[in-house]
Design a protein around this nucleic acid. Sequence first.
DNA 1: AAGGTCACG
DNA 2: GACGTACGTGACCTTG
Length: 946
Amino acid sequence: MSDTQHLYLVDGSSYIFRAYHRLPPLTDPEGTPVGAVYGYTTMLWKLAEDLDKAEGPTHLAVILDKDSKSFRNEIYDQYKANRPPAPEDLVPQFPLIRDATRAFSLPCIEEAGLEADDLIASYARAAAKQGWDVTIVSSDKDLMQLVSKGGDGVGEIDMLDTMKNQRISIPEVEEKFGVGPELVGDVLALMGDSVDNIPGIFGIGPKTATKLIQEHGSLTAALDAAEGMKASKLKERLIEHRADAEISRVLVTLKEDATLPQPLEEFKLDGVPPEPLAAFLEKHGFTSLLRRLDAGAGSPSKTNDLNPAKQDNKSEAHAPTGNRQELPEWPDVDRDAYECVQSMERLEHWVARAMAARVVAVDTETSSLDAISADLVGVSLALGPNDACYIPLAHGGSDMFAEKPDQVPLEDAVAALKPLLESDAVLKVGQNIKYDLNVLARHGIHVAPIDDTMVISFALDAGRGTDGIGGGHGMDELAERHLGHTCLSFKEVCGTGKKAIPFGEVPLDKATQYAAEDADVTWRLWKMLKPRLPVEGGTRIYERADRPLIPVVAGMEREGIKVDRAALSRLSEEFATRTSAIEGEIHAIAGEEFTIGSPKQLGDILFDKLGYKGGRKGKSGQYSTDQAILERLAGEGAPIANKVLEYRQLSKLKSTYTDALQDAINARTGRVHTSYSLVGAQTGRLSSTDPNLQNIPIRTEIGREIRKAFVPEDGNVLLAADYSQIELRLAAYMADVPQLKEAFANGEDIHARTAQEMFGSVDRDTRARAKTVNFAILYGISRWGLGGRLGIEADEAQAIIDTYFQRFPGIQNYIHETLENVRERGYSETLFGRKTWFPRINSKNQAERQGSERAAINAPIQGTSADIIKRAMTRMLPALAEAGLPRVRMLLQVHDELVFELPTSDVDAASPVIERVMAEAAQPAVMLDVPLGVEIGTGTSWDAAH
DNA sequence: AAGGTCACG
DNA sequence: GACGTACGTGACCTTG
C-alpha cells in the first residue's frame, strides 16, 4: 500500500481569516500588513515538512475563493449578505496568499462562480474515486460533510485542522454533530449559519438540530414529522419555516461534480525549490523562516528539527525589565550594629537625633498579624545604613525570660515618641505603614507625614514582579531585588507552626536584630525608590492618589462594620441542616457515600459510576465538575447535578461567610475589620483580606441573607453609594465613542443602546447579548470566549465582534493603540498616570502573550476606575466635615461602591455631598466628557441599602 | 502547597 | 509549533 497517493487540499480562504484573527498585526519592511500571510506561510511550511512522512502528502493544492459571488447567490440573494467587509489590514493580504503559494511552487486553484468549498468537494471526490486518500486542510464545518471512510477501491477522506493539530475523521464529526457526515448537511440546514447568512430555522440551534436529525433520520423526515408533534414552539417553527430549511439544505450542499480546472496529476509534489521561497521570505521580512531555509540546505522538508521560536520561549522580548540599579556605596547590613534601647535616656537620644534627621524609618512589632487586635510589643527606628535601634516595650512574661528585661514603660515610650511621629517636620517612612498607623492609633499616636516604600514600589513597578505574595512589593522581596540583601525571616525568629512564639517572647538580642534590620532596610529602600518617582513618572499617581489614601484606608479598617452574630448563627444552622439533608440525597442517588466536596471523588461518581458524558480537562487529567458542567448535566436531566450545585452553594456560604464572619468579629470592638491591600491588584484596585469584605454575596436571594447581617448601630443607617457602569463610561470616554457618550449623557440604558446599534432592535435577548459584548470588550475580547458566553460558534462571535468594531471604531482604535503602546513601552497607563507593567506582552508563547494583551486592554480602564474612587475616598471625609457632617463614617470600599454608616438624621444632608464628591472625583486632573453616575441607597442593612 | 471551585466588582 | 480561550481579586476544601 506504500504507493497509495495522498492528496492534500488546503482551504486557503478560510485559513487566512483564522490566521488573521489569531496572529499579531505584523507588518513587513515596507509596512504592508502580513500577520495572516505569515501564519499561512508557516502552515504551508509545516505541511511541506510532512512530505516524506507516511501520512504526508504526495499531492497538494491550495484552493481559494475567486470572488464573493457564487451560484448560491442566484439561489438565495441573501447568501453571505450580512457578512461584514474584511478588515482593512486583511484586504492587502489576499493577493499575498497567492504569492506565498507560488513561492512554495504549489498549485493554486480558483474558479469564478464556485466557492473554494465546491472545488475542494469536487477534487476530493474525484481523487477518492480513483483510490487516493484525501486530507482537507481546514476546520470549516461545512466540509465535514465530505469526511468518509473509503474502501472498495475508494480512498478515505479526512480533515486536518492545523491550528489545533487535530485530525477530523468520522468519530470527530459524530462528536461535533451527533450524526455521521452524510447527515451533517441536514443538521446544518436546520441550525443555519449566521456568518454565511444561511437562515436555517429560527430558534433552532445546534443542539435541537442534532436531536431532530437523530430522531427522524433526515431533514425531510423531521420536517414531515412536525405535523404530528405535540403543540410547541418547535412544532410551529418547523412548520412555518419549512421553506427556510429547504433552501438552507440546498445552500449547504457542496457541489461535488464541478469541472476540475486542472488535472489531479499536476498536483504532484516534488520538493520545494528554495530560490523563489527565499525571495518571498526575504521580501516580507520572515527572517526566522529564512534562517531555517538556509540551515536546511534548500527545502523545508529537510529542516524538521530547526525551530528557533521554540528554543527561547523564555526570552521576554524587549519590554524593559530594569528593576535593578547601581547599589549605592553603603555598608552591608550589619545586624550587630543595632542598638537595643532600654532606657528613657537612650530613647530621648534617638528621638532627638530623628528630629534632626528629618527622615526616619519606623517599624512596629506586635503580638499578632492583625493590626486592629494586635498589641504593641516594640518599635524600631532607622536614620541611616546600620544606624538603627529597637525599642522593646512588651517583651517577656513567659519562662523564656528568667526575669522581665529592662524596658522603657510603654506609656512613657509612647509619650516620648508621639511628638516625633506626629511632627510635621519629620517624614516617617514605613514598609506597609498602614499597619503601623493602625497599631499606633490605638495608643493615641496619629502618625504624619508618611511615606511607604511598599506603595512607592507599587507606583513604580506594578506588574513587574508577578511572583510572590504581596505582588512583589513585600519587604523581603524588595530587599533582595534592590539591595541584594536577604532579611532575617520572621520564621527564623519566631519559628513556624505549633512551635511559633509571639514576638514578645523573642529574646531581646534576636528581636533587635530582626526589628532594627526591618527599619534599616526600609530606610535604604526609601533612599533608592523615592528618587525614581519623578524620573520614572510615578510622582503623580503616588503623591496624588496612593499616598494620601493610606491614612484614609487605615481609618476605614479601624472603623470596621457591625455584623449581627445571631443572624449569622441562625443561617449557619439552617445551612448545616440543609446541606446534610442534600448530602443524604446525593449519596442515595450515587448509591454510595463519598466526599461531595472533593472534585476528584465527585467527578469519578458522575462520569465513571453514573456514566454521564463530560470530558477530562486540565493537566491533572481530572474531570471538571464546575458550575458550568453541572448546569449542563442538570439541563440534560441529571437529578444529582442540581443537588450538588445546591450543596456547593450552601456549604460555600456557610464556611466562607456565616461561619467565618462570626469568627472575624473583633472581641474588643464587636465589629468586623477587614484589611485592605493597597498593592493587591496590579491594576491599582484595592483588595480585601481577613476577612475579604469585597466578595460578600449579592447575586442570589439566599446569598443576600448574609448581606442582611451587616447592620448599623442603633440610631444609624448604612448608606451604599455605587458608581453606575463606571468602566463602560470610562471606555466611552477613553475610546471616544460618540453613541455611547451620548447615551450616557442622556441617562439611557447603555446596553439597550448598544443593542440598538449592533442588532438594530432592542428586546430582552439583544439587550442581554449587547451587555455580554460590552463586558467582553472591557476584558479584552476573544471570539472563543465570547462564543462560549453567548452559546454560539466562535466564527459567529467573530462576526458580532466585527460588527461592534464597525459600529464603534473608536473601540478598535483604543485596543490597537493601547497594545501598540504597551508593546513598545512595556506598560499601560491610566488617565491619572498609573502604570502597569506587562513583561510578557511580547512573549513568544502565544497563550502567555495573548493573556497579557487581554490584561493590558483592561488595565487602563479598570485602573482609571480605581484611581477615581481612590480620589473620592481621599476627599470624602474632609468634604463631609466641611459640610458639618463629622459623624458620617466611611466603612468599606468594594471597587465601585463606598459604604457609610451615619446617624439617620444625617442622611438627607450627607447624600448629596457623597454623591457630588464621587461624581466629581476625576476633576480637575481629568475633565471627562461623560458624566459619572452615582446611585445611593440607605437602609438598616447592607442589603437594604442597595 | 497546589488545584479546583466559587464569592465579588 | 502549541496552547487555551474575558479582566481583576481572596477564601475554603481536599489531596498529595
